Amino acid sequence: MNGLTMLIVLLGLAGKKPAVPQRAEVPMVTLEGETQGTTYHIKYPDERQRNFKKSVDSLLMTIDRCLSTYRPDSEISEFNRAESHRFRLPYFYPVLKKSEEVYRATDGAFDPTVKPLVEAYEQGKKSLELWLPNVDSLLQYVGFQYIKYDAVSVRKLKKNVRLDFNALAQGYTVDVIAVFLESKGINRYMVEVGGEVRCRGERSPGQWWNVGIESPTQPGGLQTTIRMANRAMATSGNYRNQYRQNGQTFGHIINPKVGFSQQGALLSVTVFAPDAMTADAFATAFIVMGLDESQRFLASHRELDAFLVYKDESDSLKTVATPGIREFLSH
């Protein structure tokens, strides 16, 4: 998710719904591990106590072979070095399609061709050398309009354009695991990868899954918790993965229109959507768009909900939630 591992705490306590007739509680299966430079946690009740960890780890490795920019042998790395690529695994095309969807919906605030700028930021953070003078020359390679694709292959319309799916790959990974669990007849689950979460059904009879959202001003602490069922969520923020140079703060979520991150009032955004990939991509886009533009967008896109943390003009911490999730938040 956006190169940022959010510490979203998956609480053992479940939020309660109105009382319902009690049924015998099915034992919970818990899977944990490491992937994509972060961790994953999966919980699901199963009368047969089936353990799918081996299958999940195999899925995670296959997704990495397709979408990881840190692997030189991945499909996306091969494409970034070439002019075109024919898909071998079934994961490239869905992420590319979602990227275009969010790119168009946000007028380019989300753009997976931001890779050259991300590399410049990472090199600047590592070396502490000035990289902003290179932004204008790198911006010529940024723009999803330079990508042409179909369900079989992808190609560049301009040399040196490169893709980076880190802003939605973890969310997509959550969705792939969720679909796998459903294929095994698991209809109640919580899947979390690097802070991106998708839940289905109840945690136990009469109880929701309860998920915590990290405070952007107190890393490791909770800003709030939310009761979830049949929804996904993802959080983005520039407050952790950043550095200062010459009195200026640079964050890792880069505005693809100007070439660097822009510090504003908005500290973090948690987006709720039917699937985690959509939530992940829009969470990144909203950080780029800022508080006011994000709120306007959400007002006209009721299929999404969001919890936003920001600082007002007096530097006081404030939060705002869209109507669809207010009753599910703790207070």
Rank of each mutant, 00 (worst) to 15 (best):
G185C: 05
D315A: 12
E25N: 10
F250N: 02
I63T: 03
Q223T: 09
Q262D: 01
Y91A: 01
Q245R: 09
V102K: 07
R231A: 09
R231M: 13
M277R: 07
A109E: 04
L67Y: 06
H252E: 03
E100H: 12
K98W: 09
L163M: 10
F328E: 02
R155P: 00
K126V: 00
L298G: 02
S215G: 06
H252F: 05
E303M: 11
H252D: 03
Y172R: 05
P216L: 07
Y146I: 01
A232V: 05
V179I: 08
I186W: 05
M228P: 06
V102L: 08
K54I: 04
G221A: 11
N238P: 02
F165C: 01
G251S: 05
S68R: 04
K184E: 15
S294F: 11
A178N: 03
A306V: 03
D64P: 00
S204T: 08
L128V: 08
V193Q: 04
R65M: 10
R88S: 14
Y93T: 00
I287C: 07
V152L: 12
H41K: 15
Q36M: 15
A14D: 11
P112K: 10
Q263L: 06
A24E: 15
G108K: 06
L168S: 08
E192Q: 15
T217W: 01
N187V: 06
N80L: 13
Y44W: 12
D57Y: 10
S236L: 07
Q242P: 00
L7I: 10
D280F: 11
M6W: 02
K16G: 03
V20W: 07
K125S: 08
T284R: 03
S236N: 06
P219A: 11
T38W: 10
N166P: 01
F328N: 14
V211I: 15
T38V: 08
G221Q: 11
E47N: 08
L139T: 02
H85V: 04
G12R: 14
P112A: 13
L317Y: 07
T173G: 06
D136T: 10
S77T: 14
P94L: 13
Q248K: 13
F328C: 04
R198N: 02
F110R: 00
E83A: 13
V320D: 00
G247R: 11
Q123M: 12
L266D: 02
E313G: 12
L139V: 05
D64A: 15
K115T: 07
T270Q: 10
G221D: 09
R86H: 14
